[in-house]
Amino acid sequence: MQPNDLDRIAQQIRLRDLQAVFEAGAGHIGGEMSAIDILTALYFRVLRIWPEQPKHPDRDRFVLSKGHVALALYVTLAKRGFIPEEEIGTFLKPHSRLNGHPNCTKVPGIETNTGPLGHGLPVAVGMAKAAKLTRAKYHTYALTGDGEMQEGSNWEAISSAAQFGLDNLTLIIDHNRFQQGAALKDTNNLAPFPAKLEAFGWDVTEINGNAMDEVVPALEKRGSRPHCIVAHTNKGHGISFMQDKVDWHHKVPNDEQYKIAVAELSEAL
């Protein structure tokens, strides 16, 4: 699949995500929009996966550590054939298996349950370490938020990944510069990330995380050390009035805003 096709799919996922947030009256739309290009590249180009065999032992692993953007992953999984597309309409409804954070015991394609931040990367380290021990060829990816990197458990995992020589592990930091309450720089500013990761023994690539021609090669890059992609993204990417506004961490558009957002995303289709 070529970058242009992937861009189109990403916009379709954005549109469906927006509709679902509007219908459910909840979601984390800002961080969903920032991460959707990465999710699209992973699921439609990079990951070796078999939707009809979600537990295939050789599948590449993807861990959504920023579990609050579960909806973006659900839409992506549905579009890729893991779950029915019409099921997205059940998001957050009573007894839906699609709750606000992903559940691996119910939803095929989910590898581990996330939601509390700082959990996904340690689990991904275990997955990558297991591949080393069993000589399995799968690659493991984890996606964290930039604010999430404030959780100390991530740095425990980063240190151990280097110690274990996990060249089969890629961490993607969705660096959209905003967390729930304020900008990253006004909260506990871990940026810039690259020197910190390099100091721990990782290779680092900085990209525009909303540009498919940069996202794909970064995800496909292999080296001799664990790899961190610092993906510079825009919170609310693709919807002009949401972009880089901290309010849109988990705000829900009103009718008028929804119409504008749909129009903007549809234009790019």
Binding site: T112, V125, G126, M127, K129, A130, G152
Partner: peptide, 17 residues
């Protein structure tokens, strides 16, 4: 690093161990 230890345990199990 106990938080990492338990998470790594979950990942190892996911990888079939």
């Amino acid at each position: 690093a106990e938080q990492n230890m338990v998470g790594v345990g979950a990942g190892l199990a996911n990888g079939g161990l």
